[in-house]
């Protein structure tokens, strides 16, 4: 039964997406070109979409990571500086290392010190932002060969980062859906204590997913730096909220335990279509923000309705059969 309801929610999302896509395509013929859809719409969303993947895992465990944008910027920045001083290889290593360390710090504090995820990542958000500002003195850090390659190369006519995204999306879908690891995540989200007493090393799993998230942020850092050719310390502002918007739009419950990767992927597509579509329609940036907020609210409400009904059905099945209809 639960399966069925989830299916309808994803389907509803797909319909919303299709309507938006069609509507925009009708209003603005410039939108419906291969070049625009692939090289602008999809290419622009890749960073958010990629980070949304590990973020989904984190949110399913009942956690959250507010520091993603700043982790990304810090990784890009230190990497760029290392590349400028030493070599590209140093840049790559430093970027990946920074991402991993940032994620590890979050993970250890959340899993071992038992500080709530929101507080930890709020504090580390300031810390990473501040470090990026401090080491760069507010200046831009510029792209280097490897990140340029990641941000601008195409393979078979499709930008490299889209291939990467597709690959990662597949991996994460399988990870969450088909592996024991994925099931443990749901279990932690629904009841961490029961999971722990069932013999699952919850602490280790939490640390792993936060480090994973940091690593993906580092990967995204290359793409971001390559695409924009430079990065400034405040480039990650609001990035965290955008990523969370995508995940929540995809039907993952912020309370943990509920959600899937398909939803996140469709959520990514919806935001991509809105972002690029509204720009093509010449709708000012301010209205775009409102529309995004409205879409999020609609998704939340429809999810609340569906979820409410599903829950009611499970709980009051016997006494109140009429709630089914």
């Amino acid at each position: 039964m639960k399966e069925k309801f989830k299916f309808t929610f994803n389907l509803a999302l797909l319909v919303i997406w299709a309507v938006l896509f069609a509507g925009i395509a009708v209003k603005a013929p410039g939108f419906l070109s291969y070049n625009y859809i692939v090289n602008v719409m999809l290419r622009n969303i890749v960073e958010i979409g990629m980070v949304a993947l590990p973020m989904t895992l984190i949110i399913i465990t009942g956690g959250i990571d507010l520091s993603v944008g700043n982790t990304m910027v810090l990784a890009a920045m230190l990497g760029g500086m290392a590349a400028a001083k030493a070599s590209d290889i140093a840049g790559v290593l430093v970027t990946l290392l920074t991402g991993a360390v940032c994620g590890l710090l979050n993970g250890v504090l959340i899993a071992k010190a038992k500080i709530s995820a929101m507080v930890t990542t709020l504090a580390s958000m300031f810390l990473y932002l501040g470090m990026a500002r401090g080491v760069s003195h507010g200046d831009s850090v510029y792209s280097y060969t490897f990140s340029e390659y990641m941000g601008t190369m195409s393979f078979l006519g499709i930008p490299l980062q889209i291939w990467l995204y597709v690959l990662l999306a597949l991996c994460f879908t399988v990870l969450l859906k088909k592996t024991a690891f994925g099931r443990k995540l749901y279990s932690i989200g629904l009841n961490p204590h029961a999971t722990k007493y069932a013999g699952v090393n919850t602490e280790k799993i939490l640390v792993i997913i936060y480090v994973l998230c940091g690593m993906i942020c580092a990967l995204v850092a290359f793409i971001f730096l390559g695409r924009f050719t430079s990065v400034k310390y405040d480039a990650g502002t609001n990035f965290n909220l955008k990523v969370i918007t995508v995940v929540v739009l995809g039907g993952t419950s912020i309370n943990g335990g509920i959600g899937d990767m398909k939803g996140t992927i469709i959520g990514t597509l919806i935001i991509a279509t809105l972002n690029s579509g509204l720009t093509v329609l010449n709708i000012p940036i301010d209205v775009q923000t409102i529309v995004q907020g409205a879409v999020l609210i609609i998704a939340l409400i429809s999810y609340a309705v569906v979820n409410n009904r599903a829950r009611k059905k499970r709980i009051i099945k016997v006494e109140a059969p009429d709630a089914l209809s």
Binding site: P284, L296, I297
Partner: peptide
Amino acid sequence: LFITRLKIPAIVATLATTQIFQGVLPL
């Protein structure tokens, strides 16, 4: 009201209203 009536978790509900507040202003 959003949070209590519609049972939307606070962080997400206010995240959505943030975008609406921000967008309305410049208009």
